[in-house]
Design a protein around this nucleic acid. Structure first.
Length: 473
RNA sequence: AGCGGGGUAGAGCAGCCUGGAGUGCUCGCAAGGCUCAUAACCUUGAGGUCGUGUGGUUCAAAUCCCACCCCCGCUACCA
């Protein structure tokens, strides 16, 4: 079996409902996966949920639900999110799966046997209010700011991973270009070069939830050691990953800790880490406490998958960007309905009346395909979409100038119809169900870049239903 | 504090690396055109001291250098 192009998303905590940030990452991953597909490649897309975290156990306890039942329920919501947004994953991994747990323990043991996990003392300030260690600089006047309590100094046995050993190797690996974009790469490199790299504590005590430490059953495995390994246990033979897609908040874990674990355990390293920015809602950070969350499942139910997908994919991948329901509506109305939907609608209507005559498509040379491909290569999805929609504009101008409603010129209509076919192919990764509708209406089935130059066979085209409805504000 | 990113028309951006008239994009606003189409589409126009410095380099600076102001991010076991 040949290895497929392997894309991952981060796996999500299931202690709450998904927000638009989760949706953004999954849609981005799906769009990149589908783009690879129209390039003719075989793709494997992995996503899933991170279920062994103590936070999940905490929230379950607060709600009075048995932990396993709680994570089962919430994991389903993340699967529902994918389904409703047409995120076509090939594997949905849950870190509570037996296979994953076994792999985790095997790797933990392997690294331990190699001598790169060792027993030591974990020392630090422990706040009994938080039930967690807190760092010295988080203290306010020597007290935990949240509980206004003086923390205890605790020293306890722990297992450590020999992360510091890999400093040089990590720098070399990252300098070869693992992290995208460059600014995130520089952030990590400067920290690696300028700060001390400490060993990583990979065990936790006093927990009743998580994967058992195979060396010492009094401990659980640190949840990040466990979570990162989902990429291997869920790979179905496709490791190493070609692209890991993660948010900027977990860059360190994926840039430093993850490659180090892999080197130590004797695995190949992933090719690219794509670090995306966050979405702000109305200029504010997404947060439950702010009460400004939009439920992406509700959005999809209300407006359909494609307007949600499109409006999110128009956000900048690398920078933080603003998102809101108003932005969704604006992009739906102005770009999807007015430009694309209306073009298809007016042309289908004209063809129904006057018919088609095959000819060379003179518009094709105005399509900046190379530029679109380059943007996709660089993960600049928003810019690729701009370029595709620039071609939609060119089509609308052409209709305007050629006035086929007066001339009844079947050749002009053919050129536009063929251009619409090309647009549908290019947009399939982003708004797949719309593209497929256009395919049905215009009589073509293949969504591949290699089909672009193959002319449309004229068929019986009818006006049909509107692709996008306008949303009233 | 350290490191990084940003400050360009009413809003959001691109342009900066590799200097050449403030060029461009998405929207908003104004006027006109068209009537095939989802009151859609097309054309034109108004609107900018390109954060500040009457700073440096240059024939020429949004672009390179310096200083300052403002915003934002990252700072490891907390996703």
């Amino acid at each position: 079996m040949t290895k497929k192009f392997f894309i991952t998303t981060a796996i999500d905590y299931v202690n709450g409902r998904p927000h638009v940030g989760h949706a953004f990452e999954k849609i981005l991953a799906d769009a990149l996966a589908r783009w690879k597909k129209i390039e003719g490649k075989e793709v494997f897309l992995l996503t899933g949920t991170d279920e062994n975290a103590q936070k999940n156990a905490q929230v379950a306890k607060e709600k009075g639900v048995p932990i396993q039942k709680f994570v089962d329920q919430n994991s389903k919501i993340f699967i529902e999110l994918c389904k409703i947004l047409d995120v076509n994953f090939d594997r949905f991994i849950r870190t509570t799966e037996a296979e994953h747990k076994k792999l985790c323990q095997d790797i933990f043991k392997k690294v331990y046997d190699k001598g790169e996990i060792y027993k030591g003392k974990y020392e630090g300030y422990y706040c009994t209010g938080c039930e967690a260690f807190i760092t010295e600089k988080d203290l306010v006047e020597g007290k935990c700011p949240e509980h206004n309590k003086e923390p205890e100094w605790i020293s306890e046995d722990s297992y450590f991973f020999d992360l510091s050993k890999y400093k040089r190797e990590l720098i070399d690996f990252i300098e070869k270009g693992y992290i995208v974009p460059e600014t995130r790469r520089n952030e990590i490199l400067s920290r690696l070069k300028n700060e001390e790299l400490k060993d990583l504590c990979v065990s936790r005590s006093n927990l009743d939830w998580g994967i058992d430490n195979p060396i010492d059953p009094k401990f659980k495995i640190y949840v990040w050691f466990d979570a990162l390994l989902n990429y291997v246990s869920g790979a179905n033979g496709n490791w190493p990953a070609d692209v890991h897609i993660v948010g900027k908040g977990i860059n360190w874990f994926h840039s430093v800790i993850w490659p180090a674990i892999l080197i130590s355990a004797g695995y190949k390293l992933p090719k690219t880490l794509l670090v995306h920015g966050y979405l702000n809602l109305g200029g504010k950070k997404i947060g439950k406490s702010l009460g400004n969350t939009i439920d992406p499942i509700d959005l999809a139910k209300k407006y359909g998958a494609d307007p949600v997908r499109y409006s999110l994919l128009k956000c900048s991948v690398f920078e933080d960007s603003d998102y809101s329901e108003d932005i969704l509506i604006e992009r739906n109305n102005n770009e999807l309905a007015n430009k694309l939907g209306n073009l298809v609608s007016r042309i289908a209507s004209l063809i129904e009346k006057y018919g088609l005559e095959k000819t060379e498509n003179s518009l094709l040379k105005k399509l900046k395909l190379k530029s679109i491909e380059k943007h996709m290569q660089n993960f600049e999805v928003d810019k690729a979409l701009n370029e595709i929609f620039a071609f939609v504009d060119i089509c609308n101008e052409y209709v305007q100038n050629k006035k086929p409603w007066e001339t009844h010129d079947k050749k002009v209509l053919y050129e536009i119809a063929d251009s619409i076919r090309i647009i549908a192919i290019l947009l399939w990764p982003f708004i797949p169900s719309t593209s497929e509708k256009i395919g049905k209406q215009f009589g073509f089935k293949k969504f591949l870049l290699s089909e672009i130059e193959k002319p449309l066979s004229p068929s019986n085209i009818k006006k049909g239903e509107l692709l996008f409805k306008k949303i009233e504000l």
